[in-house]
Nucleic acid binder design. Structure first.
Lengths: 224, 224
DNA sequence: GCAAAAGTGTTAGGAGTACACCCATGC
DNA sequence: GCATGGGTGTACTCCTAACACTTTTGC
């Protein structure tokens, strides 16, 4: 590869996260307000350019920390955005990820070196964002809907396990539809994603509910 | 973004294709032998660094043309490889794609400016490849197996349509398993991927077979 | 008419969907 | 004992999987 060739010069790699939460039945995404050009004072997803000395996920974690103060977030691959003009500064390819955290347990910084604000925004009220972040968050939501049935991405919402009625509400929020309690139970147990913990959780005045947790991995069901 | 920061400097983007064919029941991938460092004289997938003035798929098409002479190949997203040390030259992130062509109809160059050889290699006989291309082709094969039921990726094998027995053999080769003729027929027709053309194809001595073609698009079946 | 390959239908088991009643708890 | 919400089972339909015979053609 001719590294001197101007056709190759000044390229870079973005790692960008759509961080979701579910709050009282509403699915929200974490946005930050940019302090610097380009797209100064616009809302954006969390992320940024990765360094040469870090892998993609490490760079993403660093960016999330730098722009929100959040640590220890698990991220899952979502997609790639690489149109040649997607950044006005230089040629950047964006590798995009999704993650889920509990907005009630995780706090974030309202202002950082690079951001002047940060907030949870319902997914149906997302403003015009910097770069191609509107497209990215749209694809991220599709990825989220796929991955909640294939991965343990929701486990951050339930560090101490969950009851089936609790997690059913989360599925309903994210997928935007309601399920029959009995059928949801059969389905979610049949896809080999969660397991019983032999514990129960008491809510006052109600029958105690069994507590489940996510299994480590899940095989995707194939057509053939 | 501080473009002068050495942490960001000298990054680049690879677009890499695993081009498959199915020949007499054997699934093969197109490999080229590298003429230049790094990994001089090693076999590799087709691809290379993209230019600033081209989108990812355009750069991929150009690379495929430059290294094989092949034009007009449809490619489908496969994955991302971004480990910081995956290229010994500089920090490169690879966006990987898959494609399918008919080895009997498409010819390619055995030597180019960058390659000293090229050949179809059965997927169970792939040698040690340059860069992380062994990992890439492995994931590509998984993508291929997923996408033959979700996309029209196989259409390049059948520009004039196909009969069900013909395409069943291709599915069996790629998926590595055999299907009952009647059940395959029902299944492939039920997933809304192909359509009847009202034509038949005669093979000597046999009952004529109906000819089908791929539909434009296909919805992925969801769990919920 | 015979060989070769294509086309088709039926049955049984498993999964999905719709739907109603019982159970454990706090007060 | 009653209100609240959690847990469970059954019947019907649909999809899946196993399996054998008939049809068309070339020679």
């Amino acid at each position: 590869m001719q590294t001197s060739n101007p056709l190759y010069k000044r390229q870079g790699i973005h790692a960008i996260a759509s961080i979701f939460t579910v709050e009282d039945g509403v699915t929200k995404v974490l946005l930050v307000k940019r302090k610097n050009v380009p797209f100064k004072d616009m809302w954006a997803l969390v992320g940024g350019a990765i360094y040469n000395n870090e892998d993609l996920l490490d760079g993403l974690k660093r960016e999330i920390f730098e722009k929100t103060g959040i640590i220890n977030i698990d991220t899952y691959f979502s997609g790639v955005f690489g149109k040649k003009d997607r950044s006005p500064v230089m040629r950047m390819v964006a590798i995009t990820y999704i993650g889920v955290i509990d907005s009630k347990k995780v706090s974030f910084l309202k202002e950082t070196l690079h951001t002047s604000n940060a907030d949870w925004v319902p997914i149906d009220k997302i403003p015009k964002l910097a770069f191609d972040h509107n497209e990215i968050v749209s694809e991220a939501l599709t990825s989220l809907r796929e991955q909640i049935v294939n991965t343990d991405i929701l486990k951050a919402l339930f560090p101490d396990g969950f009851t089936l009625p609790e997690i059913q509400k989360v599925y309903e929020s994210i997928l935007g539809k309601k399920f029959d309690r009995r059928n949801f139970r059969k389905k979610i147990l049949s896809i080999d994603l969660i397991q019983d913990t032999n514990k129960v959780r008491n809510f006052k005045g109600n029958k105690p509910a069994k507590v489940y947790k996510f299994k480590k991995s899940k095989q995707n069901k194939s057509v053939f």
